[in-house]
């Protein structure tokens, strides 16, 4: 079943185009990573899904409803980011109790388990938590709510790496135990690639690609060798990225179109390197000017 469907989705803020003709769909019970550079439109897309914003053009359907101002959709979504606000009158303990009334799948045991694990003070106020702790607390709510559609927008901002690892682990475990549709936006792909199933990569408000992580790992090949050899060898291939090193050596990333590594390894000067997902995404979403090196060449 398709949970989210976007058709030619466009969202502009005044003259700035945040999303441009985005068409995509997200299937039920998938853990999708929404990846993109800063300003690629990740948050805008998530807010459109949550019904906070109205698309300027195009159509979005969540659970076959227009999410904007829909109680039905809202009841089945939880949107976790670091702008969540809770009344100052509530202690953290109160929040867990009060929020539970809103979500029928709420798992209080999980909530309190995580709450104790991260050793929160039940009497503390949400507003007085540090940024990282706020993110952690919001994450607890996001997991415990067990909403059919759970959205995490940059959930790990401010968390230290230990907590981040715990969070991803908790997310994966709870997802396996209680499968649901989860969208996780992040710019730290290296940390999340192990738990994601699908990746939706955005570039400048458009869909760059939407594939499963397994497919994506096979997406590209990296070659390193003397500049001339590499360029010759790669004639006719789709080069995603090149990077020059000292002594005339060149690193190139190409799209893997049915090529086998054997074809390259015949040439002894060439070295075949794996391309990490994170790097791949950077290459895919990078501007064509040749990256930061280009600035220094001039």
């Amino acid at each position: 079943m398709t949970v989210i469907q976007g058709e030619n989705l466009t969202k502009s803020y005044g003259k700035t185009l945040a999303l441009d003709n985005l068409t995509f769909q997200i299937e039920e019970n998938k853990l999708t990573g929404l990846i993109g550079r800063n300003g690629a439109g990740k948050t805008t897309l998530l807010k459109l899904i949550a019904g906070y914003l109205k698309p300027s053009r195009g159509e979005i359907n969540v659970f076959s409803h227009n999410p904007f101002d829909s109680l039905q959709v809202s009841a089945n979504i939880i949107f976790i980011d670091n702008h969540m606000a809770f009344p100052t009158a509530f202690s953290l303990d109160d929040i867990l109790t009060e929020v539970a009334h809103y979500y029928q799948n709420w798992n209080a045991k999980l909530a309190h388990g995580l709450f104790d694990y991260f050793s929160f003070n039940p009497k503390q106020r949400h507003g007085s938590l540090s940024k990282g702790n706020q993110s952690t607390f919001n994450m607890i709510i996001g997991l415990a709510a067990r909403c059919p559609l759970t959205i995490f927008d940059e959930p790990t901002s401010g968390m230290d790496s230990a907590v981040r690892k715990d969070f991803y682990r908790a997310l994966l475990k709870d997802y396996l135990e209680y499968p649901r549709t989860i969208i996780l936006s992040s710019h730290l792909l290296s940390e999340v690639e192990d738990i994601l199933e699908d990746i939706l990569l955005l570039r400048d408000g458009t869909k760059c690609l939407h594939q499963s992580v397994l497919e994506l790992k096979e997406y590209a090949l990296g070659l390193k060798g003397p500049k001339q050899t590499v360029l010759e060898r790669l004639k006719g291939q789709e080069i995603l990225h090149t990077e020059e090193f000292a002594q005339g050596s060149l690193y190139a990333v190409i799209k893997n179109q049915g090529l086998t590594s054997q074809q390259f390894l015949k040439h002894e000067d060439l070295e075949l390197l794996p391309v990490s997902l994170e790097d791949l995404c950077i290459y895919l979403t990078g501007n064509a000017k040749g990256g930061i090196d280009h600035v220094f060449k001039q």
Binding site: T88, A89, F90, S91, D94, R125, S128
Partner: peptide, 13 residues
């Protein structure tokens, strides 16, 4: 009110 509220729970209020 906002000062008081930081050390008063809603029950006390």
């Amino acid at each position: 009110g906002t000062i008081v509220v930081t050390f008063m729970s809603w029950r006390k209020s």
